[in-house]
Simulated scan of single mutants.
Amino acid sequence: MQWFHDWWRIDVIDAGKGPLLLSFVAFVITFVITRSITRMIRAGRGPFHNMSNGGVHLHHSTPGIILLVVGAFTAVGSVGRTPWDYVAAVLVGIGASLVLDEFAMIFHLEDVYWSREGQLSVNVVTLAAACVGLAAVGVSPVDVPGLGDTEQLVRGGVVTALLFHLVLVATTALKGKYPTAVIGFFASPVTWVAAVRLARPTSPWARWFYTPDKKKRAEHRAETFDTRWDPVRSRWDDFIGGTPTS
């Protein structure tokens, strides 16, 4: 367990990432509890039920926004690593989870929670959890361990590498691979592959640079990819968020 002790001391405590890690844990636990409760309500099991006020259904994104705002102002108002930083971290984690769990409803401006469109929330939560989790455990595109202040040549190389990395991330996003671009921002090898492969046929990159023949190749590749992986993604979304009714 020495590796865990070293990781905890260097990458979490010394790096000041205690609040971020706590926020990540609160985010994940809140999402699991929220989805469990909503699925029980949907199935008519347990003591839980929908809440309403004057005939208006109270969505859990409402208290989520309140907690998120309170947590944000608490973080801004706290000084140093005081206990309030950790309070703010918990509030932000819980609030963000409640809001993103209903992201699809906010995006579509209608109640699509249990529809196929509503599974966008599961994708957003999964992506957010992955990125925050990577940052919490010490994965960062700008961390340069052991770099001294006088090592100008090394710093120049690092800056050049980071700029190149950002170009690859932007290229991946322009190719329509938005989740891959976000993950690749933290895990650079992901963008090395995604940036050189064919773009999605509806992406800005395909519209700007692809000839009709190359666009057909992109459409064929996208169709093959979606045929293979869409069922896997759908099963994952159904497992996490519940099978949609439409």
Rank of each mutant, 00 (worst) to 15 (best):
V193Q: 04
G184F: 08
W192Y: 15
W208N: 02
E219H: 11
F186P: 07
P204T: 03
L198G: 02
A187C: 09
P212Y: 08
W192E: 01
T202L: 06
R200V: 00
P212S: 05
V196H: 08
S203H: 08
V193P: 00
K216F: 12
T191L: 00
P204A: 07
A194G: 00
P189R: 12
A199N: 04
Y210A: 09
G184I: 04
R200L: 04
T191V: 15
P201H: 08
A199P: 15
S188D: 06
W192C: 02
V190M: 11
V190D: 08
A199F: 09
D213K: 13
W208D: 07
K214Q: 15
F209M: 06
V193D: 02
R207S: 09
K216H: 12
V196Q: 06
K214V: 09
R200T: 04
T211N: 11
R200M: 09
T202F: 09
K214M: 12
K214C: 00
T191Q: 00
W205G: 00
L198K: 11
V190G: 03
Y210F: 13
A218N: 05
W192T: 01
L198Y: 13
K214S: 04
T191C: 09
T202C: 00
V190K: 04
L198V: 02
V193L: 13
F185A: 11
Y210T: 03
W205N: 05
R207E: 13
S203V: 01
A199V: 09
R207Q: 12
K214R: 15
W205A: 07
A206H: 05
K216R: 15
R217G: 01
W192M: 03
R217L: 11
V190C: 05
A195E: 01
A206G: 06
F186M: 14
V193F: 13
P212W: 05
A218R: 10
V196I: 14
L198H: 08
P201L: 06
R197F: 03
R200F: 08
T191I: 01
Y210V: 01
R217P: 01
L198N: 03
D213L: 04
P212H: 07
K216A: 08
P189L: 06
G184Q: 10
P201S: 08
T202I: 02
T211G: 14
